[in-house]
């Protein structure tokens, strides 16, 4: 119930932004919020995953900072008078459980410095890396940890291979 109230507040805020604060639209807004909460409860039942507020803050800070880094870095490469790239396709072993977390990680990595997600394997994610010296495993693991924190997911221990 608490989760649904939280969602209603979120959708109400969303409506407020969409209507640009216009008070006369709240009739439609109210109907929309109720429908949105109902749809979200159906598609994404509140018990499965919970967004953590502190995790969200950490994700946003990480994401904003890394996307600025990513944009600046690729822009500098693009503008460099002697363009030199050493791209590769890398396999990144996933420690997140299948589902929303993996998708969010793939999307996040596509926007972070030097990597574009290029397909899921069984338990790995293929990444196109713009320059192999630029991207270190630690950055990717940091993104994974932040996504896990946001969705309250457990990371599988890296030593464990297979069942």
């Amino acid at each position: 119930m608490l989760a649904l109230i939280g969602r209603a507040a979120l959708f109400a805020g969303l409506w407020w932004a969409l209507a640009e604060g216009a008070a006369r639209d709240w009739g439609v807004g109210l109907v929309s919020v109720v429908l949105a909460v109902a749809t979200s409860a159906w598609l994404w039942p509140p018990t499965t995953t919970r967004l953590s507020p502190s995790g969200l803050l950490r994700f946003l800070v990480f994401f904003l900072w890394q996307s600025v880094r990513g944009g600046v870095l690729v822009a500098r490469l693009a503008l460099h008078p002697r363009l030199r790239l050493r791209p590769e396709v890398r396999r990144f072993r996933l420690r997140l459980p299948p589902g929303a977390g993996r998708v969010l990680l793939a999307d996040t990595l596509s926007l972070l410095p030097g990597t574009v997600s290029a397909g899921f394997g069984e338990d790995d994610l293929r990444l196109h890396v713009l320059d192999r010296d630029l991207v270190v495993e630690a950055d990717l693991r940091a993104a994974e940890a932040v996504v896990a924190g946001l969705l309250g997911l457990e990371l599988e221990r890296p030593e464990v291979t297979g069942a």
Binding site: S67, V68, G70, G71, V72, L73, V74, A75, A78, S110, L111, P113, G114, V116, H128, L130
Partner: peptide, 9 residues
């Protein structure tokens, strides 16, 4: 990379 990162920024 050029479109997904730089243009988005």
């Amino acid at each position: 990379h050029a479109l997904a990162k730089v243009d988005n920024l």
